[in-house]
Amino acid sequence: MNNQIIRILACWVFFWGSIQAKAFEPKSDLSVSLERVRYCQNFWCTQQATQSEYLAWEQEGVSNTYQLYTQIARVRQPEREDVRNLVFIAAGQQPPGYGSESAVTGQGDNFKRNCGISEKSCSRSIDGRSLARQVLDSEYFPADDTFFAVAFDAQFNYMVNSGEKSRIESAYLNWLKSKAYASNLESIYLAGSSRGGCLAMRLAKALRNDPDFRSIRTIVHSFDGVCKWDQNEMGVTSSFFRNPENSTYLSYYTDLNAQFPYKDNLYIRQLAGGDEVIEFTGVHSFVYAVEDINLGWYAQSWVNLDHITIDRDMYPAVRDQTVVPFLKHLEEVF
C-alpha cells in the first residue's frame, strides 16, 4: 500500500511539474504599437506636440526632451469602468543609440531604428520569452478587464535630477490612475529591471500612500532594480551588502520596511545581482536584506549574474534564474 501511495504521489508531482513547465514555456511574439509621448511636427523639431493620451507628462511639467524620448506600448486598454487589473512593466535605462533588448519588457535590440522622434508610433514586437509576454498570457490578467502597458524607454534615467524624476513619476502615476477606478480594482502589477525596477518600486510606494489604492492587492517585481543613493531614492543609502554568491558584487541597502508601512495585500519580490552597472561609476542595485529571505510581503533572492545578463538575457539557463521565479511568485500570490 505504501509503495502504491508513493508511486501515485510521484506521478502527481511529475504531472504537476510538467504542467508548470509548460505554463512557463516561451509564447509567440506579440506585435504592439509603440507610442511616443511627444513627437516633432516638422523636420527641425521646432514644432512639437504631446499626444493627447499622454497629457499627464505635460501637466506635470516633464521637460520636452524626456517626453520626446519616452516610448510606451498600450497592449490592452478596456474601458475605464471595466478595468479590474492594472499592469505596468518598464525596461531599464536605454543606452545611447537605437535601444537594447529586455528580458522583462520583451523589446528587441535596435527597437528605435526607423522609429525617430517625428514618428507618433511604430509597430514593434514583444518577445515570447519575456516576462511581459508571459504575464500577458497568464490567467491572472484577463484581456477584457486588464489595462496593460509596457515602457520600452521610460526615460526615468539615473542622472536625471531629483525634481525631474518626481515629475516623471507623477506623470506615470496619474496616467495609470486614469485607467481605472480604484473602487473597481482587484490587483495592481508593477515590474521593471534596473532603472525600471526603481520606477516600479516608486510607483508602488506612491500608490500605497494613497488611501484609495492602499488595500488593493499589489505585486511588485524588481530585476536588479537601481535607485540613486545620493538622491536618497527609495531611501537607498551608501551602506551595502555583498552578494553571498559573488563577493565582488554588492547592492546598496534601503529599509523597505519603512518605505512600505502599509503591507496588507502587498507582495514585493526582488532579484539582486549587485554587479556594477557601468564600470568605475559605483552604480549598483539596491536590496533590503543581506541574504535570501521571504517575509510574505517581501521576498528577495541573490543570483550570480551580471547586471546586463539579468536585464537582457533570455536564454533558458538564465531565464530559469530570472523570469521563471517571478512567474512562480505571481502564481503563489494569486
Results as ranks from 00 to 15, higher is better:
N2F: 13
I6Y: 04
R7H: 12
C11E: 08
W12R: 15
F14W: 09
W16T: 15
D29M: 05
L30I: 15
S33P: 15
L34S: 00
C45I: 05
A49H: 11
T50D: 06
Y54G: 04
Y54I: 03
W57D: 07
G61A: 07
G61K: 02
G61F: 03
V62H: 01
N64F: 09
Q67K: 11
Q67V: 04
L68N: 00
L68D: 01
Y69D: 02
Y69N: 01
Y69A: 01
T70Q: 02
R74A: 13
R74N: 14
R76F: 10
R76N: 10
Q77D: 11
R80M: 11
E81M: 15
N85A: 03
A91Y: 03
Q93Y: 15
E101G: 14
S102D: 09
K112N: 10
K112W: 05
C115A: 03
I117E: 00
C122M: 05
S123G: 13
S125K: 13
D127H: 14
L131I: 02
L131W: 05
R133S: 14
L136E: 06
S138A: 09
F141K: 00
P142E: 07
D144Y: 08
D144K: 15
T146S: 13
F148R: 07
A151Q: 02
D153C: 02
D153S: 05
F156H: 10
Y158W: 10
M159D: 15
S162R: 14
S162N: 13
E164A: 12
E169P: 03
L173W: 02
N174P: 06
W175E: 12
L176R: 04
L176F: 05
L176A: 06
L176P: 00
A191E: 06
G197S: 03
L199R: 01
A200W: 00
A200K: 02
R202Q: 09
R202F: 00
A204K: 00
K205C: 07
A206K: 03
L207C: 05
R208V: 00
H221D: 14
F223R: 05
F223L: 06
G225H: 00
V226T: 04
C227F: 02
Q231F: 08
E233S: 11
M234D: 09
V236E: 02
T237D: 08
T237M: 07
S238I: 08
S238E: 09
S239C: 11
F240D: 12
F241M: 12
N243R: 04
P244H: 13
N246T: 11
N246R: 12
T248A: 14
Y249H: 02
Y253M: 12
D255E: 08
L256A: 09
A258W: 01
Q259H: 01
D264I: 11
D264H: 13
N265Y: 04
L266W: 07
L266R: 10
Y267I: 10
Y267Q: 02
R269I: 13
L271K: 01
A272H: 10
E279I: 12
T281S: 09
G282Q: 02
Y288Q: 09
A289W: 03
L295E: 13
Y298C: 11
A299D: 13
S301M: 14
S301N: 15
W302L: 08
L305Y: 07
L305K: 01
D306S: 12
I308S: 14
D311R: 06
R312P: 06
R312Y: 14
Y315Q: 15
D320A: 15
P325E: 01
L327F: 07
H329C: 03
H329N: 14
H329M: 13
V333M: 08
